[in-house]
């Protein structure tokens, strides 16, 4: 296996959790809700996903546990922000703190345990094609699922009526309400979907990336996923591109460290986060000329008058 092939394989692996979590958050934000709790839902997905897989011995059931954990945590968020009209930023931050703490508690007994990682696809002949074989036909199912998920979200948003309604709710909840659409219900489903995706993105880490659990193993990926949604201007295609770009930055800094460039490793490790900040600044500067891409009702509390 050549170096380039190895790099591409590891980039894909590093990008997949970002893509899963960001795709879910994109749908949430398109419905007009800003859930800053992605990091908390991811780490809960990681802890519960590992626990599920450890008890059942099945990666698939583990992944389902991860999804359920993320969705359950997002339920708390939905109750607060949609049911009780709490400020979304505050509730999202609280959700992350809750998720990080709770996952440490749940995962405490599993630290040091090992499971067998998710198997990679193997198709005779195809997987053996030099270079592209492993990249295209030799990944684990999470990777294929994440790509299919983004394609499905694009199709949903732009080709179905339900997707149109979801975008409409995010653009103007007052208009949507005036036309008779159940704004809070639609947002509720979006938030749950986003929670499930974040949970799955988190579960990917102990189930496929590294076959063990350590507290705090998401290491800020939830925040990068949030930045990715802004980076993508809320467009699924750009989201995928952005996720792989950030995955590449993460991996390349590791390789750069291995080469011994004489740059402190701490500085190199901070590269993905620095890239996040730079991208956010560039995007907010570009917005002045390109018109606003954000859903117009993003982050605003809605209380229907009845």
């Amino acid at each position: 296996m050549g170096l380039l092939e190895a790099i591409i394989l590891s980039v894909i692996a590093a990008s997949t959790p970002l893509l899963l979590a960001a795709a879910g958050e994109l749908v949430v934000e398109r419905s007009g809700v800003l859930n800053l709790g992605v990091e908390g839902m991811m780490i809960m997905g990681a802890a519960c996903g590992f626990a599920g897989a450890w008890f059942t011995g099945s990666t698939f059931l583990g992944a389902l546990c991860g999804i359920a954990a993320g969705a359950a945590l997002s339920c708390v968020f939905a109750l607060l922000t949609l049911g009780l009209a709490v400020n979304q930023v505050a509730a999202g931050l609280a959700l992350t703190i809750l998720g990080v703490g709770l996952s440490g508690l749940i995962g405490a007994g599993f630290v040091g345990e090992k499971i067998s990682p998710a198997p990679n696809l193997y198709i005779p002949l195809l997987t053996s094609i030099p270079f592209i074989g492993r990249i295209l036909f030799g990944q684990d199912l999470f990777v294929y699922f994440s790509v299919a998920l983004v394609a499905a979200i694009w199709w949903f948003l732009y080709r179905t009526r339900a997707g149109l309604v979801l975008r409409a709710v995010g653009d103007s909840h007052t208009s949507a309400h005036a036309l008779g659409y159940p704004v809070l219900k639609i947002r509720m489903f979006a938030v749950l979907f986003g929670g499930g995706c974040a949970g799955l993105g988190g579960a990917f880490l102990p189930l496929a990336y590294t076959p063990f659990f350590i507290p705090g193993m998401t290491a800020g990926r939830g925040w990068i996923a949030l930045a990715l949604v802004v980076f993508s201007s809320w467009l699924p295609g750009r989201l995928a591109a952005g996720a792989y770009l950030f995955g590449a930055v993460t991996i390349l800094q590791l390789h750069a460290q291995a080469f011994g460039l004489g740059i402190p490793s701490q500085l190199m490790s901070s590269l993905p986060y620095l890239a996040t900040v730079v991208v956010l600044v560039l995007i907010s500067r570009a917005r002045g000329t390109a018109g606003s891409a954000a859903p117009a009702s993003l982050g605003m509390v809605f209380v229907p008058d009845r």
Partner: peptide, 22 residues
């Protein structure tokens, strides 16, 4: 409506579709 119940970032056709029953 007096305060239009329109969606600024959607197209005219999409806005009309949202007011119909699909």
């Amino acid at each position: 409506f007096q305060h239009f119940s329109l969606f600024d970032n959607l197209t005219v056709a999409e806005n009309v579709a949202l007011g119909l029953d699909g």
